[in-house]
Design a protein around this nucleic acid. Structure first.
Lengths: 108, 108
DNA sequence: GCGACCCTTCGATGGTTCTCAAACCGAACG
DNA sequence: CGTTCGGTTTGAGAACCATCGAAGGGTCGC
């Protein structure tokens, strides 16, 4: 299967990134991806209590916002954080978001 | 008129803050508020090409997310950024968002 | 009081989003 | 080949959101 489209650095929009991360499920995905830098995760590795269709939707939102890179490997899609690109375009944003979340997790 | 409700620091949710800032109009409001720290702006000072009903809606979203404080002064509502609270709860977030925006403004 | 002023709320509308089950599709495995 | 395995796409429903005009509600100036 063809690689899905990824926006270039210059195409990244702050609004899109913020919107992508404003959903709790997607925030959690980003948080997990960031916990193992450089590593790649299959979609099925995320057990968030959502159907695979919904999960696929969230990954698309993250990908189109430029938060996540999807690599096709056999019949799997391997996801990784686009940390360098994000740090370049929006310095400090990712750290602030991931820190804020970890240190500010409510019982919910 | 009664002061509107403002969430306490402990009640701030990262998702809500990100969602509030993910709308271009609200991002612009936050950007303008940050440009004059400590100052207070009347709602009517924001000419974004939106109706006052819409503007009022955006201010409510920002207020309920904890981004903005609304003070009633006579027949005006004076808005200010809750920078200290945000910096305490989500260190670096506001700076990253506002920097990212200023340094990443597309012709649009 | 009366109007002007500033903003909020209401009601409506059109668009977007989240969610799922079902169908689909390419890759791998037998 | 046929099947299974990972994900995507589609179709649909419910919920949410941005937006506006119109109506409402305090407050100030006269």
């Amino acid at each position: 299967m063809r690689e899905p489209h990824h926006p270039s650095c210059a195409e990244l929009e702050l609004s899109d990134v913020l919107h992508a991360l404003s959903d709790p499920a997607r925030l959690e995905i980003a948080r997990r991806l960031s916990s193992a830098p450089g590593e790649e995760w299959a979609c099925s590795a995320f057990d968030l209590g959502l159907s695979k269709a919904t999960l696929s939707h969230h990954f698309r939102v993250l990908r189109e916002a430029g938060v996540v890179k999807t690599r096709v490997a056999g019949r799997k899609r391997l996801q990784s954080l686009r940390r360098e690109d994000l740090d370049t375009c929006f310095p400090g944003l990712l750290d602030a978001v991931l820190n804020g979340y970890a240190g500010h997790r409510h019982a919910a």
